[in-house]
Amino acid sequence: MENQEQKKRDTNKIYFLIAVIVALLGTNMYLYFQKNKSDQRIVTVSDEKTALQTELEKLETELDQANNSTTELSTELKTKDDELKAKIAQLKTALNKGTLTAGELAKAKEDVKQLRYFVGKYTADIDDLMKKNAALTGERDSLKTTVSNVKQLADNLSKVNDSLYTKVKAGAALKTSQIQIGAFKIRNSGKETDVTRASTAQKIKVMFTVANNPIAEKGSHDIYMRVLDPAGNLIIGEGGSFTANDQDLQYTYKTAIEFNGDAKTFTLDWTNRNNFEIGTYSVILYADGYTMGRGSFSLR
């Protein structure tokens, strides 16, 4: 009887030990799984922080690239740039904390998401500004080209007008169709006799015919005469000067004629105050700023 009771007590001890062992195993298994979940959670949080930090660095790089453009930013865009950079710095500081709660991590993710939207809009605004500046630059260059072309056209027209004016002015100047020159001696009676000797010549008569010119100014025209001696020296008469062929010249004699546009013959008399020399003399007539005609005569 005692043996049976002893066996019963031993059996109960065994069952108790088995229950204790099972409980310990269950506890160990629970602690193991809880630790595993905790480790996995830490890994997940760490990965999310890294991803957010990488995203912030990308956003920061995009901002730097946008600001490295040669475009001059407006005050509004500069303010937005400062705000975005400050927000990035704030989020980076938050992510660099040793620990983050689930709420802080969720808020950081939402802030980065919003920041991505604003950075995208900011860079799009800068891109639009660059396109507008490029368009304005193109318009400015086109306008400069147009102004340059107009100026060139105006210069060309001015040159054409000057050329036409010069041609018209030259065309309107009086010209001789023929010129005859003779030397004369004045007798005591006042009668003039043509001569060929230098010793007896006292004056010359220049008979010239003005050609028909319908565009010439009608009315009085000044006629200037230059007489060159056989050595080519100008014989100074009245000692005045005039301009012809873009040169300032002295003349020997000056007179005026009336011209109505039709061909007409005129005679010009000039008395030499000095003696004539042997040789050939040149006579050049000028009118309206141009050479009118020329001739010569010889004395022996």
Rank of each mutant, 00 (worst) to 15 (best):
E110P: 02
N156A: 14
L115D: 04
T146M: 10
D141S: 12
M130R: 12
D127I: 02
S148E: 04
S148K: 10
N149S: 14
S148N: 10
N156S: 15
K121H: 03
N133T: 11
F118N: 11
K132H: 00
L143G: 07
G138Y: 04
A135I: 06
A124N: 08
V112W: 00
G120N: 12
I126K: 03
V147G: 04
T146W: 03
G120V: 04
L157P: 04
Y122L: 06
D141H: 07
R140K: 15
V112A: 09
A135N: 08
D125C: 04
K121Q: 09
G120F: 05
K132W: 00
N156V: 09
Q152M: 13
L136E: 10
D111Q: 10
D155C: 03
N149D: 15
V119N: 01
D127Y: 00
L136M: 09
S148Q: 06
G120P: 01
L136T: 07
T123I: 11
D128A: 14
F118M: 06
K131F: 01
S158L: 10
T145S: 14
A154C: 07
K109V: 00
D125A: 14
Y122R: 08
Q152T: 13
K151Q: 12
N156G: 06
K121R: 11
D127G: 12
D155Y: 08
Q152W: 09
Q114M: 10
N133M: 09
S158H: 10
D111T: 07
V150D: 14
L136W: 03
D127N: 13
Q114N: 14
T123C: 05
K109Q: 05
E110I: 07
Q114E: 09
F118C: 01
A124V: 02
F118L: 08
L157M: 10
K113Y: 04
Q152D: 13
N156T: 14
S142Q: 13
D125T: 06
Q152Y: 09
Q152G: 15
G138P: 02
N156P: 03
K151L: 11
Q152V: 06
D141N: 15
A135C: 01
I126M: 03
A134W: 01
G138W: 04
K113N: 05
A154W: 02
L143T: 13
L136S: 09
Y122K: 07
K109T: 05
T146Y: 07
Y117H: 11
V147L: 15
D111W: 03
E110H: 07
G138T: 12
M130A: 14
K113C: 01
M130G: 03
V119D: 02
V150K: 13
A135R: 12
S142F: 07
D125L: 02
E110M: 10
V150Q: 13
K151R: 10
K151G: 07
K144H: 07
